[in-house]
Nucleic acid binder design. Structure first.
Lengths: 173, 173
DNA sequence: ACGGCCATGTCCGAAAACCGCGAGACAGGC
DNA sequence: GCCTGTCTCGCGGTTTTCGGACATGGCCGT
């Protein structure tokens, strides 16, 4: 009696300088999840929350997505800006993630700045929390948010990768 | 960014031998809620849970619904069997409510029999709970479930109405 | 018969825990 | 003094846990 429109998502694996990544796309070409292969359980957990009941089948991501990611890692760090993503978090999370995509490659923001940008200057830790539960890494650039004193503080894919991504973007502007 | 497709539901009021009733239907003719007018707050609460964010406007229910209800109260106690209902409870509740509709008019079941019918013989009290949170009274005949010893035990619309409905159905087969 | 007792499964609301922070206080080292 | 590192605590949204509540039905005494 429940609406059982089981959505079918494709799971692709691509090689990058920072290790193999998992890309989940839907039938409309939107990216639903993107994470590093060694954090697969985490991605599956997030995906289960954001796309309940969807089935996952191995398959190639749309060419536009593959090419954009390749271009990004090759040095065209703005290549991801046109990609469409689709997530289903709370209203607060949606605001945070939208604010993330507004940070240009090569720049960084502090958690406090991001909190102020969405009109809740004191919701600093909550921003960190929403940041950490972002299902679409790299494209939604949660790695561009650092501590107010310049320290990297944390990253779901490991601080080493956060450092690499920031250096990559800083060197390619 | 959340899906803000505000659904519009119609709220009708009809007279019956057991008092005025509230009928909520959707754009597809399915009954979403049905309760007695003097329990309006309860119905609103259930509706808020089963159709979050929907707006309610006064208006007439589809003719098929009105006629079926009139026929039922006039003596054609099987007139409600063809009506479509739509609810959004948990899986357990859905099973219980489906099992309810399988009880023919004029018959009754005990809570234990109903629990056994859905394959959870010991979930007796849970059946009672699910029964009580049924948003679509009368059409989903929760009044046909009574205690194992024949007592009526309880009814959201008042025991007096439960007694009346059962007598009405028993006398009209 | 009748009245108490208790095991039972599910759901809901409240409360607490959890954090990818940041500001302020404080202690040392120069 | 000044700079830096460590500590403490308040912050806010989300998730998890927990404690009742309940439209029962046996069982066991009287």
């Amino acid at each position: 009696m429940t609406d059982a429109r089981r959505e079918v998502l494709r799971l692709d694996r691509i090689e990058t300088p920072v290790g193999e990544m998992l890309v989940v796309t839907d039938g409309e070409g939107a990216v639903r999840a993107l994470d590093f292969a060694d954090y697969e359980p985490r991605m599956m957990r997030l995906l289960a929350r954001h796309a309940p009941g969807a089935t996952l089948t191995p398959g190639q991501a749309p060419e536009a997505v593959r090419q954009a990611l390749a271009a990004y890692f090759a040095g065209d760090v703005r290549a991801l800006e046109g990609l469409r993503v689709k997530t289903a978090g709370t209203a607060f999370q949606a605001e945070v993630w939208a604010a993330l995509r507004a940070i240009p490659a090569g720049e960084t923001r502090s958690y406090g700045q991001l909190a102020a940008a969405i009109g809740r200057p004191s919701a600093v830790r909550a921003v960190g929390l929403a940041n950490g539960s972002n299902p679409v890494g790299v494209i939604v650039p949660c790695h561009r948010v650092i501590g107010a004193n310049g320290t990297l503080t944390g990253y779901a894919g490991g601080l080493e990768r956060k450092r690499w991504l920031l250096a990559h973007e800083a060197g390619a502007v």
